[in-house]
């Protein structure tokens, strides 16, 4: 085990703690409707603030997933702190799976 006690580990602080807690929009995704997000990707492309991210739920050794198969990928809201509630994702979603509340 390397001794790290002498190291001066940098701790940059971009977040102003005095302003917390902050309130962000709540974005709900209905996963029974949104099943092929990696193939569809309309919300990812529409969002100017890059709030959404998509990832493979079935990561496994020696296996490549097909994004056309329902349920292999899932889109999630990550950077809700950036959401400006422009509602473009709601408009663009072909399955009406997204709802935003504040």
């Amino acid at each position: 085990m390397v001794d790290r006690s002498h190291l001066k580990v940098p701790k940059p602080t971009p977040v102003d703690l005095t302003k917390l807690p902050l309130k962000f929009p709540k974005i709900e995704i209905d996963y029974s409707k949104c099943t092929v997000p990696f193939w569809c990707k309309k919300c990812l492309q529409a969002c100017s603030q890059l709030v959404f991210q998509v990832y493979c739920k079935q990561l496994a050794r020696l296996k490549e997933s097909d994004p056309r198969e329902p349920g292999t990928y899932e889109v999630v809201t990550v950077r809700r702190d950036k959401c400006n509630m422009c509602n473009k994702c709601v408009e663009v979603c072909p399955e009406d799976a997204i709802t935003i509340t504040y």
Binding site: V36, D66, R68, E95
Partner: peptide, 14 residues
């Protein structure tokens, strides 16, 4: 869903 049916129409090479 609509998207699933659309998705199945396209080819996706693994």
């Amino acid at each position: 869903t609509k998207s699933e049916e659309e998705a199945k129409k396209t080819a996706y090479p693994l």
